[in-house]
């Protein structure tokens, strides 16, 4: 790889990192609105409020940046950066098209992806601790509890796919993927997606930011640009989770005419999953903190173990 090639790839990663989350955000505005019998933003930019998020961004950039007097200043200021950067790193390993349609093939791809995604949670923890706010602290602790509970089923479900494929590399997994993996890995897919939702603290797993109980959890004291970065991290997280689920369980770029249109299939599957994330937000009430823990330990972990047993038996017997 020469320098120009690397530069193009870096640029592609950065651009998709900045554009896709905004698309998901705007879709969320509109989809939520229509599901709730409203129209959503209509004015910014003229056509159906397409520029609403751009306007929001301009507003965020102009707002005064307030760090509370009592806060742990450095940690408080660094937290949004730590929440955001891991999701950028994850995009490196996600294949979007067959035959080199990935920024970098990593041998231990899935391992790398899961490890780096876990780091992002640290941002919320740091924010919650450093805010010098009782509600933020509670939110941070809930975030920690949620990470502990849902990282395990996520790991196990991902391990099931690597067992089926016999490789940890994400392009490698897609290379051996067959359509009948869909029913074979279906349980794992549900576990992985649910656990991912919980790690992103999206509804119905949004107890860490529950506005009617603890204001806005770890992000209560944030304003302006730093708050915007936290929001960007949340939507980037949706993109990354949807893309990963698509790659691991839905065959990524596989589909008719995959050689030419592989990227479109990948984008489509990611989009449909992201739509599902939004849909879940609109249709389910928030789970209580203890219900969240119980779901992980008594439902998702046993299901993931079952999936591993199933994968092992089918793989060896076939």
């Amino acid at each position: 790889m020469d320098a120009v090639d690397v530069a193009v790839r870096l640029l592609a990663v950065l651009l998709s990192f900045l554009v896709l989350p905004l698309l998901v955000g705007q879709t969320e505005h509109k989809v939520m609105a229509h599901m709730q019998g409203r129209v959503g933003p209509m004015h910014a930019g003229g056509f159906h409020g397409w520029a609403q998020l751009v306007a929001d961004g301009v507003k965020f950039a102009q707002k005064e940046d307030i760090v509370p007097e009592g806060a742990d200043r450095r940690v408080f200021q660094l937290a949004p950066a730590l929440a955001l950067i891991p999701y950028l790193l994850v995009l490196v390993a996600i294949p979007v098209a067959p035959g080199g349609g990935v920024v970098q093939v990593l041998d231990a791809g899935i391992f790398f992806v899961l490890a780096v995604m876990g780091v992002g949670i640290l941002g919320s923890l740091m924010g919650g601790w450093a805010s010098a706010n009782k509600f933020s602290l509670l939110g941070g602790l809930r975030t920690a509890a949620q990470l502990l509970a849902y990282e395990l089923p996520m790991l196990l479900a991902a391990a099931s796919v690597t067992m089926a494929a016999g490789t940890l590399s994400l392009p490698g997994i897609l290379g051996v993927w067959e359509w009948w993996w869909l029913p074979w890995q279906a349980v794992g897919a549900v576990v992985f997606f649910t656990a991912g939702l919980a790690e992103l603290q999206r509804p119905p797993f949004d107890a860490p930011v529950a506005d009617s109980e603890i204001i806005f959890g770890a992000y209560t004291e944030y304003t302006g640009l730093r708050f915007a970065l936290f929001l960007l991290a949340e939507y980037a997280g949706i993109v990354v989770l949807s893309a990963l689920t698509a790659v691991l369980f839905l065959g990524g770029w596989h589909g008719p005419f995959a050689d030419g249109l592989g990227w479109l299939w990948m984008l489509l599957k990611t989009g449909v999953l992201a739509f599902g994330v939004i849909w879940l937000r609109v249709s389910y009430p928030r789970l209580r903190e203890d219900q969240i823990q119980r779901l992980a330990w008594t439902a998702l972990v046993p299901l993931a173990l079952f999936q591993i047993a199933l994968t092992g038996v089918v793989k060896v017997v076939m």
Binding site: M1, R9, L10, A61, Q62, I85, L88, L89, L229
Partner: peptide, 28 residues
């Protein structure tokens, strides 16, 4: 392969630094 990963990490840090610097210039 991790050279590129390192470079993307650098891009990420630069992006955040640029955002914070721009914010510093723009906000009251």
């Amino acid at each position: 392969g991790y050279t590129v990963v390192g470079l993307v990490a650098v891009v990420g840090v630069l992006f955040v630094c640029a955002a914070f610097a721009a914010g510093r210039l723009l906000r009251p």
